[in-house]
Amino acid sequence: MTIAAVLIDHRHGAVTRPALEALTLARSLGTPVAVWLGEAPSADAAAQLGEYGATEVRVVDAADARVASRAAAAVGAASGDADVVVMISTFVTKEIATRLALATGAGVVVDAAGAELVDGKVETFQTVFAATWDVRTRINADKAIVGVRPNTTHATPADSPAAATVVVVDAELPEARERIVSVEPVEQGDSVPLAEAPVVVSGGRGTSGDYSLVSDFAELLGGAVGASRDATDEGWISHEHMVGQTGTTVTPALYVACGISGAVHHRGGMQASGTIVCINMDPEAPIFEISDFGVVGNLFDVIPQAIERIKEHRGA
């Protein structure tokens, strides 16, 4: 029987939606076991993992697991029997996946949009080259590690809940050379992190630095605010909001690009989104080539009208 370990992403003790997506995907690859780094989960959190199929919740309460080598050793201690390890693909987990692969001989695919078992081997699919190509990869090694992007699997509870038995795993972690000198949390407020948001409304040069309408539109649609490199370089909005190849890659169900021309650096971070809508003054802007619905116009006219119409529709 195939065991599929899932590294659970959690924030302030709560399981994140991408973690449930990863568990949902893992159910199609084997028997899911959850791997939880940090203080043991609450009964509610463990129960939720059970609802999504986790037979066990393996807890490694590792200090300094911010360092990749230590985090990888912790995940490794809790997933020794797993044939597949699934994690949400982020800059941090890519390092954990790499270290774990070197320790175990596993094959790794990161930034996958999904995975399936074919003749006993894990195959992944993903888009590359700014989402202009589809690629299918076979993991040849006996053990597979799959980093999956948020919003690529629809999280659904298992037909019947699994036990989610909490098991504490003792792990011997290596001494790290790296020393974390300081950590400053970035204020998220109540908003959903960009990478996980089901809707992203982004503003670029066309906003001239005024993000009020972009924020209003994002709030109305239940989404997060993104930005182009131009806008973060101008200092109009902080780097955490940057969507693009070197910022955050997003794959929301809806992406709204306001006053963004769509340079390849930006497209690489959003082109795999479900529906793409854009508003831009320049009819020749490359963003129109990848937009399902494009408006040649001024975002300061178009957004307020769209907001009004949506509110009217909802009120009706």
Partner: peptide
């Protein structure tokens, strides 16, 4: 990082 700024030596 998306959720924090770290200094590491």
């Amino acid at each position: 990082l998306p959720d924090s700024h770290e200094t590491v030596s």
